[in-house]
Design a binder for these strands. Structure first.
Lengths: 250, 250
DNA sequence: AGCGTTAAGTACGTTGCCGCACGGATGGAT
DNA sequence: ATCCATCCGTGCGGCAACGTACTTAACGCT
């Protein structure tokens, strides 16, 4: 296991280092050094379920190139994304907030890599009440904003607006403008029918904002997304910027 | 200011003690003792705005008999409740989570009383990294669940179901089954039209579950609400119970 | 090269909620 | 006792999204 510790290798497109996760990168060197021997680089396969509602988590995840989606799944099977986690964040809030579980599902929305850390090690470090605690609480605060905003957006905004919001938030966490993503998957995130996504995506395509083919979406005109998105995107982005201004790409 | 410290008085219907707030009641005596000289009992007037989006909070509030509603207000004036805070909780999460502000509005949904505490005193106590920190983080985790669930509920459930959820959650925080509440206000909480509330309430009235008159709603048949509510109510309630099981009515 | 699976397009009736515009009723205030 | 602001009831057209059903197109596999 110790051998699997991440070292940037030539075979990886972006290289890989814990520093590619903004939270880890924002830690003082001494704190990061304590964690580093325990950080394990793992591949994140599209659609993989990292956490199921009510389970006890074995690991926390710090995405680097992958994106994780937090879903709430209803009794009747309907679902809705409540937040996304990319290289700006961590999966496993409930480990340090208390309670250990949450009533939600976490799955890989965009394939890539993440560093994982045994739950206990994260908790122990958190309990030192040092920089990691401060950092994780601020991140959690930003996550709360994202969840609240998503909820309000669900109530008031159109599918097209929400699709724009979702695309922009995803784009911000991606190195490229090419998303490997089916409309079906987007529908489950937004909590709408697949056909509704087809319709909304069709409009954006017609306006030349995006193009797509089977299983791929390409954003052609990011500014165009901005003109059609609701305020929610900007609010979330601004709040992350404000709370984690010192947590930037290394 | 010191003179205004809460002492239960005969003039108060329920009497009033910090112990009527579950979080305060759950603190070890030594920790509560440090806070108590700084707790100030204040009346909470219906509709009063305790916090406006982006403001810096001067106080944290621990409701006893009052209920506070956290709203998100959109640019176009549309609004939606993202969470409620009663005697099980605290208003002022962002003070200790970091960042000090949130993009939301807090207003009094049900008149009553609350203990308030100067921000700095709460933060100082939180920074001792003792029982208060543990307690507040667990509470925040429960609040996160409530927000996520509300968001998903906004997406998938009918106005009647949501009204039932809202009534039950409010009822849980009230000593009586009589709510002083206009349909207009409920509409702004649920983020729907006033007429939609009229319609939903009319159905419940016809079924004999509630009755109401101008500005008052009375729940006649709580079990009836339970049969019409969506799963969301139970999930939130269970999560609060699980996370704050040791935080009970004194 | 052809096949089978899965993604995406189309169509149509239905519905739940919206926006608007009223009229009627209530209950506190003068 | 009367006034009148506020709250509640109702009606109607409109529409975005839904549920359902089916077709067409793309990709990957043998």
């Amino acid at each position: 296991m110790l051998e699997s510790i991440a070292r940037p290798t030539a075979t990886l497109v972006n290289g890989s280092s814990p520093l590619h996760n903004f939270l880890l990168a924002a830690l003082p060197a001494a704190d990061l050094a304590r964690l580093e021997p325990n950080l394990e680089l793992v591949p994140m396969k599209l659609g993989a379920v990292l956490y199921e509602s009510g389970e006890r988590m074995q690991h926390a995840y710090f995405p680097t190139t992958s994106i994780i989606s937090l879903h709430y799944v209803m009794e009747d099977g309907a679902s809705a994304e409540i937040a996304g986690v990319g290289n700006e964040g961590i999966l496993g809030i409930s480990l340090f907030m208390g309670g250990n579980t949450t009533p939600s599902r976490a799955l890989v929305q965009t394939a890539g890599e993440a560093y994982r850390l045994k739950s206990q090690i994260l908790v122990d470090e958190f309990n030192r009440c040092g920089p990691l605690l401060r950092l994780l609480l601020r991140y959690t605060q930003a996550l709360i904003t994202q969840m609240a905003q998503t909820g309000a957006c669900n109530r008031h905004h159109s599918t097209v607006q929400q699709l724009c919001r979702w695309l922009l938030l995803t784009l911000d966490r991606m190195p490229t403008a090419d998303l490997v993503m089916t409309q079906e998957l987007i529908a489950s995130m937004l909590g709408v029918r697949r056909e509704s996504v087809t319709e909304a995506a069709g409009k954006l395509k017609q306006m030349g904002v995006i193009s797509y083919r089977r299983g791929h979406i390409q954003v052609l005109d990011r500014a165009g997304l901005n003109t059609h998105v609701c305020e929610c995107y900007e609010v979330v982005k601004a709040e992350f910027g404000r709370l984690l201004h010192d947590v930037q790409r290394p």
